[in-house]
Structure formats: structure tokens, C-alpha cells
Write a protein that binds this DNA or RNA. Structure first.
Ligand SMILES: [Mn+2]
Ligand SMILES: [Mn+2]
Ligand SMILES: [Zn+2]
Ligand SMILES: [Zn+2]
Lengths: 151, 151
DNA sequence: TCCTATTTAAGAATTATTCTTATACAGGAA
DNA sequence: TTCCTGTATAAGAATAATTCTTAAATAGGA
């Protein structure tokens, strides 16, 4: 469940140098918030990190947790799961298919691939539960956003 | 961009029979909401569907759109994108990896696979934009939820 | 046509997330 | 070390997405 100490140390070091490179102040809050996230492998949300930190840091605010996480996300020091940061999107295409998601504008388009439909699922994954569906998510920059960026 | 008429007809027919099989009333609202979603391939959110329907159905409520979409989702007549319908989850694991997501409880676990790291990306996908990352998302039922279900 | 369980509209409520502003502090300069 | 200042934080208000409550409407079977 937990992360090994050596892996945690590695993550902390990468975080520190990333902050310094970006010119960010190494505040107690940032250190603790990152460490709390880096020590877990269950993909917590902001609220879960907040409450786990509250006992050590009674004055920590939830807003700081959010602000810090999005900042680190923008710097590529952490990631978020799933395509969005917005509202939930729905899909009436029930054929097995895959998605290209634009990191800038959220554009999400379908594509099909017989090859990707038949992925070999590792034993590790089977050990987690019964697998019912698999899909590939590609993240990138759509053509329209690339053009805007080129200006 | 749009969906072909024949594909739309097929989706509508599947929807109708799915509703009847589930004992759902075929209300005007359900028909229109599903049709609006089935006619698009851009994965709209509830608000987008709502505003596209408002001109034809001035008394339609946003709540009905949400209620209908989640209902159809639960019946498997449509899908949602991304992990689940909760808050955003964060991840400090920066190595390329993949996820198993439990459809019941939202448990999200990492797994690694050199094979899945090197997926062949179809030309269709490259045509949509510059691909920066790829990951596989497996959906299923975790062991813990399977046990509960077995009771 | 009538009946009734189901569904809907409307708006209030809730929840996740962001904004505003006054205060605190990290870290460079002296 | 102390001082200074731009950056970061706490607190709570504000906003946006989603859900709940309740009274009215209606699909579809009798
Ligand atoms: Mn899709
Ligand atoms: Mn992960
Ligand atoms: Zn884009
Ligand atoms: Zn589960």
C-alpha cells in the first residue's frame, strides 16, 4: 500500500529541485502537502490530503492544498487523473474505442483501433480485481491549440 | 464532426429497446436528451446538452438532464469519461504507468507494464494533434467490492 | 378514458473549487 | 544576523457543478 522510503526520498528530492528551478519558495506547507501526496499510492483528492495534514498543521487551509496541488500539476511535478478539471462528460458511443484528450482545451475525440482493443493485461492488474473494460487515453495538444500556441 | 444518420438511428433503436427492457417510460425528455447526446461526438457535459435543447424545450430543467444522463449511464446506455463522478484525484507517481479503476468504489491503483508503455498509436490519433503521453485505463470491480457484492 | 406509479420542473441545498484580502514569511541583501 | 519585499498563506466569502425536495404533470397499462 505505502511507498518505500527510498522512493519517497527520490520524490522529495525531485520536488525540491523542481521548486528551486521554478523559483518557488520552499514553504512548510508545500513540503508537507507534497510529502503527504508522495507517500501515498491511492490517488487522494485535495480534501483527503487536507484532513490527513490537519493534525500536524492545524492552521493549514484547504485553499492552500488546492493552490499547491494545481501549481505542482502545472509544473509537471504531480499529475491529475482523468481528462478533466471541469464538469463530467458523457459519451453515447458504446463501441469499444479510445480517446485523444487535448491538455489545453479539453477537446476529446474518439478513435478506433483493433490493436488497442486487444491489449494484453498484466497479471498485476488482474490481481486488483475483475477487469471489465480497457481503454487507451492519449494526452496531447490538438491541432487548433497548436496553431494558437505558434503565434 | 457529426454522426451519420444511420448510426444515429441505430443508437436510438438501441436506446428505445434498452429503456423498454428496463421498464422506463419513454418520455419526451428522455428521447430528446438521448438523441442530443447520440448525435454528437464531442463528449458534451450536461450543461452543453441542456442549452442545446432549451430552444426546442423551453421548460426542460437542468436537473432532468443530469438525472437522465446518470440513469442511462447506470443502465449502460451511455458512458462517462474519466475515472468517476467525484472530486479530482492527484498522483505523485511520475513514472509512466497505468490505472485500474473500480467502478463501484472508485479505488484507483497503479500498475506498470513495459508492453503498455509502447503502444502503437494509430494514424487517426496522430491526425488529431501532437501526442505527448499515453496511458491505459482498466475499469472493473475491485476484490473488496466483489466480496461485498457476493453477499 | 381513467388511474397511478413514475417522472418532471423549479428552485433550494449541497459540495467541490476558486477568489479576495489582510497578514505572514522565505530567502536574498546589507 | 537583521531587514526588506515580493511571494505565499489563512480565512471566509463567492462561484460553479451537481443533487435534493416537493408539488404538479404524464406515460402507459387497465
Ligand atoms: Mn468517446
Ligand atoms: Mn497513478
Ligand atoms: Zn486543444
Ligand atoms: Zn471497489
Amino acid at each position: 500500500m505505502g511507498i518505500h522510503q527510498s522512493e519517497l526520498d527520490k520524490r522529495m528530492e525531485h520536488f525540491r529541485s523542481g521548486c528551486i528551478k521554478a523559483g518557488l519558495k520552499l514553504t512548510q506547507q508545500r513540503l508537507e502537502i507534497f510529502k503527504a501526496l508522495a507517500a501515498r499510492d491511492d490517488h487522494p483528492d485535495a480534501e483527503a490530503l487536507f484532513s490527513s495534514l490537519r493534525s500536524h498543521m492545524p492552521t493549514l487551509s484547504l485553499d492552500t492544498v488546492y493552490r499547491t496541488l494545481w501549481l505542482l500539476n502545472d509544473l509537471g511535478l504531480i499529475n491529475t487523473l482523468g481528462p478533466r478539471r471541469e464538469s463530467i462528460r458523457f459519451d453515447a458511443n458504446l463501441r469499444q474505442h479510445h480517446h485523444f484528450v487535448c491538455l489545453r482545451c479539453g477537446l476529446t475525440r474518439d478513435f478506433e483501433s483493433d490493436l488497442l482493443n486487444e491489449l494484453p493485461i498484466p497479471e498485476d492488474a488482474h490481481a486488483m480485481g475483475k477487469v471489465l473494460a480497457s481503454q487507451v487515453e492519449l494526452r496531447g495538444i490538438c491541432d487548433s491549440c497548436s496553431q494558437i500556441e505558434a503565434l
